[in-house]
Amino acid sequence: RYTFRTRGPEQMKRVVEWARRQNLSYRVEVHGDEYIIHAE
């Protein structure tokens, strides 16, 4: 189980790509310009 905090969509997309390659399920929360990605 991982939690990532990123700023801006570019970093968020990179984390999502990584999670997909690992076959993890993930969800993204948006708080202003901060993205929180939960993957497991």
Rank of each mutant, 00 (worst) to 15 (best):
L24T: 01
E17D: 11
R20H: 06
Y26L: 08
R21N: 10
E29P: 00
A19Y: 04
E10I: 09
V16K: 03
R27D: 05
Q22F: 12
E34P: 00
A19R: 00
V16E: 04
R5T: 09
M12Q: 02
D33S: 09
H31L: 12
I37A: 00
R27F: 12
L24N: 00
I36R: 03
H38Q: 06
T3G: 02
N23K: 11
V15R: 02
E17I: 06
R21S: 14
R5Y: 13
A39F: 15
Q22N: 15
V28N: 00
E17V: 05
H31D: 13
I36Q: 02
H38L: 09
E10A: 11
I37T: 00
Q11W: 06
R7V: 09
Q11Y: 06
D33N: 11
H38T: 14
R7L: 07
V15C: 11
W18K: 00
D33Y: 07
V15I: 15
Q22L: 14
Y35R: 03
E29S: 07
Q22S: 10
Y35S: 03
N23M: 09
Y2L: 09
P9Y: 15
Y26H: 03
G8E: 15
R21A: 13
G8H: 15
R20W: 05
P9L: 15
H38E: 07
P9N: 10
R27A: 06
E29W: 11
E17N: 08
A19H: 02
G32C: 04
F4W: 12
A39E: 01
I37P: 00
Y35L: 04
T6V: 15
W18S: 01
R14H: 06
R27T: 14
M12K: 03
K13P: 00
F4P: 00
W18M: 02
H38Y: 15
I37W: 02
L24R: 03
A19L: 15
Q22G: 05
S25C: 08
V16D: 02
P9W: 15
R20P: 01
Y26M: 04
K13Q: 13
E34N: 07
R7W: 07
Q11V: 10
Q11R: 08
E10Y: 08
V30F: 10
V15G: 01
R20T: 11
R27G: 03
L24D: 00
I37Y: 01
E40L: 09
E17L: 09
V15A: 06
D33R: 07
D33K: 08
K13C: 13
E29T: 09
S25G: 05
D33H: 08
R21K: 11
M12I: 05
A39P: 00
K13F: 10
G32Y: 05
E17H: 05
I37D: 00
P9M: 14
T6D: 01
K13T: 08
R5K: 10
Y2T: 04
V15K: 02
W18G: 00
R5F: 10
E17Y: 06
N23C: 11
T3W: 06
Q22M: 15
V30S: 07
E10H: 07
R7T: 11
F4Y: 05
Q11P: 04
L24F: 10
S25M: 11
Y2R: 05
R7E: 05
S25D: 09
Y35Q: 03
W18C: 06
T3L: 11
H31W: 11
Y2K: 04
T3K: 07
R20V: 13
Q22K: 12
L24Y: 10
T6L: 11
V30R: 14
T3I: 14
T3N: 03
W18F: 03
Y26P: 03
V28A: 02
E17C: 10
E34F: 14
V16I: 14
R5N: 04
D33T: 09
R27I: 13
N23T: 03
I36M: 04
N23I: 02
E10P: 13
H38A: 03
M12R: 03
F4M: 03
A19W: 02
R5M: 07
T6Y: 03
W18R: 01
I36Y: 06
E40Q: 12
Q11M: 13
P9K: 15
E10S: 08
Y26R: 00
Q22A: 10
I37H: 00
Y26D: 01
R5L: 07
V16A: 03
R14W: 08
D33Q: 08
S25N: 12
E40H: 13
I36V: 12
S25W: 14
P9R: 14
I36E: 03
E34K: 05
A39L: 15
R1C: 15
T6G: 05
R20F: 05
A19T: 03
R7Q: 09
R5V: 13
S25Q: 12
E10Q: 10
L24Q: 01
E40I: 11
W18H: 02
R7Y: 10
P9G: 09
I36F: 07
Y35V: 05
Y26W: 13
E40P: 04
E29R: 05
S25E: 09
R14F: 08
P9F: 15
H38D: 03
V28L: 05
R14K: 12
Q22V: 06
I37N: 00
E40Y: 15
T6Q: 02
Y26I: 14
H31C: 12
R14Q: 11
Q22E: 08
I36K: 02
F4K: 01
H38S: 06
D33C: 08
R7C: 11
A39M: 15
E34T: 12
E17W: 07
E40A: 11
S25P: 05
R14E: 09
T3R: 08
R1G: 10
A19S: 03
E29Y: 12
E10W: 07
E29Q: 07
R21V: 06
G8S: 15
S25T: 13
R1Y: 11
E40V: 11
R20G: 04
E40R: 10
Y35I: 07
A39C: 15
F4C: 11
N23D: 05
M12S: 03
R27M: 09
M12E: 00
H31K: 11
E34I: 14
Y35T: 04
R5G: 02
R5H: 10
E29L: 08
R21T: 11
L24A: 02
R21F: 06
R21Q: 13
T6N: 02
H31I: 14
E34H: 11
E29C: 10
V30H: 09
V30L: 11
V16S: 02
R1L: 08
T6C: 15
G8W: 14
I36N: 01
W18D: 01
V16M: 06
R14I: 13
M12H: 02
Y35G: 02
E10T: 09
L24M: 14
R7K: 13
R20K: 14
G8M: 14
E34M: 14
G32R: 05
K13W: 13
F4Q: 00
T6I: 14
N23P: 01
G32T: 04
L24V: 03
G8D: 15
S25F: 13
E40S: 12
E17Q: 10
G8Y: 15
T3H: 06
V16G: 01
V28G: 00
H38V: 13
E40N: 09
V15M: 06
G32I: 04
H38K: 05
R27E: 08
R14N: 06
V15Q: 01
F4A: 01
Q22D: 02
E29D: 06
V28T: 03
V30W: 07
H31S: 12
R1V: 12
N23F: 08
F4G: 01
Y2M: 08
M12N: 01
A19M: 12
R20M: 13
G8V: 15
L24H: 03
F4N: 00
R7G: 04
E17G: 05
N23Y: 05
E34S: 08
R1D: 05
N23V: 03
S25I: 14
R21W: 05
V30G: 04
Q11I: 11
G32V: 04
F4T: 01
E34V: 13
I36A: 02
R1W: 11
M12L: 11
W18I: 02
V30A: 08
N23W: 04
E40K: 08
V28S: 01
G32A: 06
V15F: 12
I37M: 03
A19E: 01
I37L: 04
R1K: 13
G8P: 01
